[in-house]
Amino acid sequence: MNAESPGHDLLRVKGLGKRFGTTTVFHDVSFDVARGSLVSLVGPSGAGKTTLLHIIAGLQKADSGTVSRFDGDGDRHPAILVFQDYVLFPNMTVFQNIAFGLKARGLSKAAIRDKVAPLLNYFHLEDRAEAYPAQLSGGQKQRVAIARAMILEPSLLLLDEPFANLDRNLKMETALFIRSTQRTFGITTICVTHDLQEALAMSDHIGVMLGGKLRQFAPPLEVYRSPVDMETARFLGPVNTITAPLARLLGLEICRLRPEALRMEPDPEGPGIIIASHFAGHYMSYTVRILDQDLAVYALEPWAQPGDRVRIHISNQYPPIFGGSFTEDSCV
């Protein structure tokens, strides 16, 4: 539904609620989306992210609340949803898929060619123009689906799990491509994903949906560093709780810290002992037991083994996500 713009916002979701039978999917979801911004809604499976996206796209009806779009001409610049598995028309070539919306608007063949060609070029699909969807890779299909939407200059682009069908190594690349495309075309975009790293990397705002609620809606750094509650904090990544005995030893207050705030160094006399290590590709994740408390610590190099004794440094560059901040580094 279109309404008068309250300012630079393009979309206002207010008090939205949805139930399936007796099960509440979510309730009282409210947020505003600024024109030209990229918003990611993150949350575990079943949090209602996709349902929310479908309601914004007009494919489902909400049980309560409103969705208002302030874009004037919704017919000329519609909201377009790109489904998780892209839903390309299997009987049409890449060119025909991308041109579909223009053809539906009655543009001439020459005008369609003129508009499709630069998009094929931008999305690196020139040599696949005559291919059918079944002949494309997952990444190519996604680019066709986004190009098919982008060519209509939609007021709002909705992406449902854009990384779900991609190989791990393609996800971040795709996230950055979506970000640069979104900026190039200036299309307001809402993306639903459970790929946190990609969402944090590409978004202007992150909405965290947990337990049927939109827990937090804020810029990525704020959501990551200042989550509204522990559940949100834990959903976004591991949290170390510095309890009273350890806090006393460190000269800190009781607080909660991300693993990035902790650094360890080998010390046979150190108070900590490594009880587990996990290779995570571009970093190592260690579990260090200190004063009967387990801490998650990341390191770039795999230099320590379970059983090694270590000393822990806490950097003040990473303020606690909960609890009082500190001005100097601490070490134990």
């Binding site: 377009i80 949803l81 579909f100 919306g101 539906a104």
Partner: peptide, 15 residues
């Protein structure tokens, strides 16, 4: 969803 997509892209029922 093929039909939903076509409608979102502006196609009428006949097209």
């Amino acid at each position: 969803r093929l039909i939903q997509t076509a409608r979102m892209l502006g196609a009428g029922p006949l097209r």
